[in-house]
Simulated assay, not measured.
Amino acid sequence: MPQELPPGKVLLDVREADEWAAGHAPGALHIPMSELAGRLEELPGDGELYVVCRAGSRSARVTQYLNANGWDATNVDGGMLVWASAGRPLVGEIDGAEPEVV
């Protein structure tokens, strides 16, 4: 995973709403894994998707599904845990709370 996403690349976060609210990558697209099948129209039709969850297992399943259905998806190995530990930026949705990966 590059430090910065190149132009045309989308980071798709498939964690649940509470995980997203606690801390996520700036500019990421949030579609929980449980809602993905009903929200495919929100995904860009072209360009590469990087798929992320907390540690990499949910995103691996989503990556397989997307690649089988015509998208160009790459799993972010290690997920948001590796993202945060590498010092990449995090933003949160909880007022007054420091962004974190939960």
Rank of each mutant, 00 (worst) to 15 (best):
L43E: 06
R39F: 00
E19K: 09
D18C: 01
P2A: 03
V76T: 11
Q64Y: 09
R54L: 12
T74N: 11
G70K: 10
W71D: 08
E98F: 00
G87D: 08
D13G: 12
E42I: 03
C53M: 06
L90C: 09
R61K: 14
G70V: 10
E42N: 01
G92M: 03
E4K: 10
A84T: 00
A55P: 00
E98A: 15
A84E: 14
I94Y: 00
S34Q: 13
G8M: 04
R61Q: 15
G8V: 01
T63C: 13
S59V: 10
D18F: 01
A73L: 09
N75A: 08
V62E: 05
P7N: 07
L49N: 11
E19N: 04
G87R: 08
W83V: 07
L12G: 05
A22G: 05
R39I: 01
R61H: 10
L11K: 03
R61E: 11
S85L: 10
A21G: 05
W83T: 02
D95T: 13
R61V: 09
R39K: 15
T63E: 12
V76I: 15
D18H: 12
A68E: 15
Q3W: 14
A37N: 07
E93A: 11
A37Y: 04
V76C: 14
E42M: 11
W71R: 15
G8A: 03
M33G: 02
G87M: 13
V51N: 07
L5P: 01
H30E: 04
E4Q: 14
A21Y: 05
L5G: 02
Q3S: 10
G70Q: 04
P89S: 13
R61S: 14
Q64I: 01
Q3K: 13
A84N: 06
V91C: 03
M33P: 00
L43D: 04
R39Y: 01
G56R: 11
G96H: 08
A28D: 02
D77N: 09
D18R: 12
G70C: 09
V91G: 07
V101H: 02
A68G: 10
I94P: 00
A73I: 08
G56E: 08
L29Q: 11
A73E: 11
E16L: 12
A55M: 13
W20M: 02
D18Q: 14
P7S: 13
H24F: 09
E19M: 00
A21D: 13
L12V: 07
I31L: 06
A86M: 12
D95W: 04
P99H: 05
A28L: 02
R54S: 02
R15K: 05
G8Q: 04
V14T: 07
E100W: 00
A17K: 13
R15W: 02
V51A: 04
G92Q: 09
A55T: 11
E100V: 10
E48L: 04
L36M: 15
G56S: 09
N69S: 08
D46A: 14
D46K: 12
G96P: 09
L5I: 00
R39V: 01
V10A: 01
G23W: 06
P99T: 06
